[in-house]
Measured scan of single mutants.
Amino acid sequence: HHHHHGSGALAALHAEGPLAGLPVTRSDARVLIFNEWEERKKSDPWLRLDMSDKAIFRRYPHLR
């Protein structure tokens, strides 16, 4: 159930192989992290948004 927010940013994801479903670039990863943060913020208003490279690598090590 993907609803768009204002920016309408869509992340490019790997379609197949071992990385299927994972973001292709760091900016794609940022979109995913932001979208998930927006969702989680509803139940956790104090949740901090962390889109640093460090956060991205921790989450998606293949982007190193």
Rank of each mutant, 00 (worst) to 15 (best):
H1K: 10
H1M: 10
H1Y: 07
H2W: 12
H2M: 12
H2C: 11
H2E: 10
H3I: 12
H4F: 12
H4A: 12
H4G: 10
H4N: 09
H5Y: 15
H5K: 12
H5P: 13
H5V: 13
G6P: 14
G6C: 14
S7E: 11
S7K: 13
A9G: 13
A9K: 15
A9Y: 14
L10K: 14
A11S: 05
A11K: 03
A12K: 14
A12M: 15
A12E: 14
L13S: 04
L13D: 03
H14P: 03
H14K: 02
A15W: 09
A15C: 10
A15S: 15
A15I: 13
E16I: 09
E16L: 07
E16S: 13
E16P: 04
E16T: 12
G17S: 02
G17I: 02
P18K: 06
L19T: 03
L19M: 07
A20M: 12
A20Y: 09
A20I: 10
A20S: 08
A20G: 05
G21Q: 07
G21H: 04
G21K: 03
L22R: 03
L22I: 02
L22A: 03
L22H: 03
P23A: 01
P23R: 00
V24E: 05
V24P: 02
T25W: 04
T25A: 07
R26I: 15
R26D: 06
R26G: 05
R26T: 12
S27F: 15
D28S: 05
D28M: 04
D28W: 03
D28F: 04
A29E: 01
A29M: 00
A29F: 00
R30G: 04
R30K: 09
V31Q: 10
L32V: 08
I33A: 02
F34R: 09
F34W: 13
F34G: 02
F34V: 06
F34K: 07
N35E: 10
N35L: 15
N35P: 00
N35R: 15
N35H: 12
N35S: 11
E36I: 05
W37H: 05
E38L: 15
E39H: 10
E39A: 11
E39C: 09
E39R: 10
R40F: 08
R40V: 05
R40E: 08
R40D: 07
R40C: 07
K41D: 05
K41E: 04
K41G: 05
K41P: 05
K41A: 10
K42T: 07
K42Y: 07
S43E: 10
D44I: 06
W46Q: 12
W46E: 11
W46T: 15
W46G: 12
W46H: 10
W46D: 13
L47Q: 07
L47E: 07
L47R: 07
L47S: 11
L47H: 11
L47K: 06
L47D: 05
R48G: 07
R48I: 13
R48D: 07
R48H: 10
L49W: 03
L49N: 02
L49P: 05
D50N: 07
D50R: 06
M51E: 02
M51R: 04
M51F: 08
S52R: 06
S52A: 03
K54S: 12
K54E: 15
A55S: 06
A55V: 10
A55K: 05
A55E: 14
I56A: 01
F57V: 08
F57I: 09
F57D: 09
R58Q: 14
R58C: 08
R58M: 13
R59E: 05
R59D: 03
R59K: 11
Y60S: 00
Y60M: 00
P61I: 02
P61S: 03
P61W: 05
H62N: 01
H62A: 15
L63Q: 00
R64D: 08
R64Y: 12
R64E: 09
